[in-house]
């Protein structure tokens, strides 16, 4: 049990190193990378909007009930922007990249593994990591920050809809305080987080698919494990990133 999990961590380390060395050395499968990136980004874009938008609305709804106590409703947009830019958008966009992109990568690579297509590629002296894994890994790394930007816009708009249309706050105050109180560092920080989460998702998804065993049920298990393990990992990493980056900004 303990030995098994240690061996798994070691295999994952070796896998990550092999992927990393292929990312920095030619030859790059640019077309494949672009195709996978586009596929992930286009499949996640609508779900990201559909999830972050209501979260922005909910943040504004509950935030108002706090700021009502101070009579400081005008500061609402700064709470929404902090919550959305720093936490909600990177985390939720990455969750959906894991659920859509990561699980699709694990399913595709797992299906290739159990139908022995990956072995066939190796026999033809084609590096399967370079042709099949690296483009998918890079797709997750590129798509997560890009979707984070979409998520930020959706979240802020969601907050606006609740604050201005539903609760009747003045619209100009919302935008003015948003531009005034949001540090550029909030946006860079959130995007950097999404980038780190994308790296984790890409590695975990490709590892699970590449090492899938046991038929159709095994592919289902690899897909399932991908979503769960990558989300847990990046939520834990998120705490340390938040403490390191945003703790320093305020102090």
């Amino acid at each position: 049990m303990v030995i098994d999990s240690l061996a798994g961590i070691g295999r994952f380390g070796v896998f990550s190193w092999s992927v990393a060395t292929r990312v920095v050395t030619p030859y790059w499968e640019i077309d494949e990378t672009a195709r996978h990136t586009w596929e992930v980004a286009s499949r996640c874009a609508m779900p990201v909007v559909a999830v972050v938008f209501p979260f922005g609305m909910v943040m504004a709804l509950q935030g108002l009930s706090i700021f009502d106590l101070f009579g400081a409703q005008r500061l609402l947009s700064s709470l929404v922007s902090v919550a959305v830019f720093r936490e909600l958008s990177p985390v939720l966009a990455s969750t959906l990249v894991a659920a859509q992109g990561g699980s699709a990568f694990a399913a595709e690579l797992g299906a290739m593994r159990i139908s022995e297509e990956l072995d066939a590629t190796e026999i033809m002296a084609i590096d399967s990591l370079r042709t099949h894994v690296v483009p998918r890994f890079m797709a997750a790394v590129i798509a997560a920050p890009a979707l984070n930007v979409i998520g930020c816009l959706a979240g802020i708009t969601g907050g606006y809809v609740t604050a201005v249309w539903v609760k009747g706050q003045p619209s100009a105050t919302y935008w003015d305080n948003l531009w005034e109180l949001t540090h550029p560092a909030d946006i860079y920080g959130g995007t950097f987080k999404a980038l780190v989460f994308g790296v984790l998702i890409g590695l975990i998804a490709c590892y699970q698919g590449y090492h899938a065993t046991g038929g159709a049920a095994g592919v289902g298990k690899a897909v399932n494990d991908t979503v769960v393990i990558s989300i847990t990992t990046f939520i834990i990493v998120n705490y340390f990133l938040t403490s390191a980056m945003f703790g320093a900004i305020t102090n």
Binding site: A99, G215, A216
Partner: peptide, 18 residues
């Protein structure tokens, strides 16, 4: 097929989260 199972699993989690 195995990719059908992967796709169903994938759609299930995204649609229910949304």
């Amino acid at each position: 097929g195995p990719s059908g199972v992967g796709r169903a699993t994938n759609a299930a989690v995204v649609v229910s989260a949304v």
